[in-house]
């Protein structure tokens, strides 16, 4: 069984004189993992996420999803992954139903499947009552749920989540984390980044710490805590990345 994600010697730099955002990075995420990627601001988390999802083109190294090289199989790779970006990525003037119909069609789903998925996901996300209202009238938490619902419509095998709960209330956060665990229990590999370290402790079984474009630690959360004699992710984070401001 191929790993969900296999990265070898990946390097990437933005145009201009910016330093390399990712440097000789290697990483392995197994199928069924709930994998957290953490690091200070500017460490390269979002760049790495964009490289894994094919949003940024890499010229050095290799990124494979379920054994398929991302840069050579973009269209197929997109059937395997789902992406929940940090920023809302949908049409704000449309309703959740209209957004899901549109993106479902682009994901290659048939009309019947789309209708079924809309009903199921809007019920799970508790958005049935507002299914036909424009999203721009929604609260931040409701928008986060729409963002997530669209990303999982085509039942991706690997779901990338870039700060999926930023700016939401406790209830919404619990509901989202609960749903993500359910997805994972059904076989979806989760790749997650966040600054909500308590939430991450609850969700992730494996983590990688990234700083200045390099992986500085990667293992199960328990092993890393034991190794660095910490009792929580926040302490581990500060131990590995230091206490200086990074932005």
């Amino acid at each position: 069984m191929p790993p969900a994600i296999h990265i070898e010697n990946l390097s990437f730099e933005y145009k201009g004189n910016a330093p390399k955002a990712v440097r000789q990075l290697s990483l392995r995420v197994e199928q069924g993992d709930r994998f957290g990627i953490f690091g200070p601001n500017g460490a390269g988390k979002t760049t790495l996420m964009n490289l894994m999802t094919g949003l940024l083109p890499y010229t050095s190294g290799s990124v494979q999803l379920l054994g398929h090289e991302v840069k050579n199989n973009k269209k197929f790779i997109n059937t395997l992954l789902g992406f929940v970006p940090q920023d809302f990525s949908f049409y704000h003037e449309l309703s959740p139903v209209e957004n899901m119909e549109f993106f479902g069609a682009w994901a290659g789903l048939h009309k019947k499947e789309i209708a079924q998925k809309i009903n199921d996901l809007l019920s799970i996300m508790s958005l049935q009552a507002v299914r036909n209202k424009p999203v721009n009238t929604f609260s931040g938490g409701m928008k986060r749920r729409v963002n997530l619902a669209i990303a999982v419509m085509h039942e991706p095998q690997i779901l990338f989540l870039d700060e999926p709960t930023v700016g939401v209330d406790v209830q919404t956060r619990h509901a989202i984390i609960h749903y993500l665990k359910t997805l994972n229990a059904n076989g979806t590999t989760l790749v997650y980044t966040s600054h909500q370290l308590k939430e991450a402790e609850d969700l992730c079984n494996k983590i990688a710490m990234i700083d200045e474009g390099r992986i500085i630690a990667s293992d199960t959360l328990n092993e890393l805590l034991k190794e660095h004699r910490q009792d929580g992710l926040e302490g581990l984070f500060l131990t590995l990345t230091g206490r200086e401001y990074r932005d």
Binding site: K75, F76, N78, T79, L81, F88, S89, F90, F103
Partner: peptide, 18 residues
């Protein structure tokens, strides 16, 4: 700006078609 392009680019249909 609203990120729909990112969403479209991570779906199987080619963004050029959009």
């Amino acid at each position: 700006l609203n990120g729909s392009i990112i969403r479209l680019r991570t779906l199987p249909t080619h963004f050029g078609l959009a």
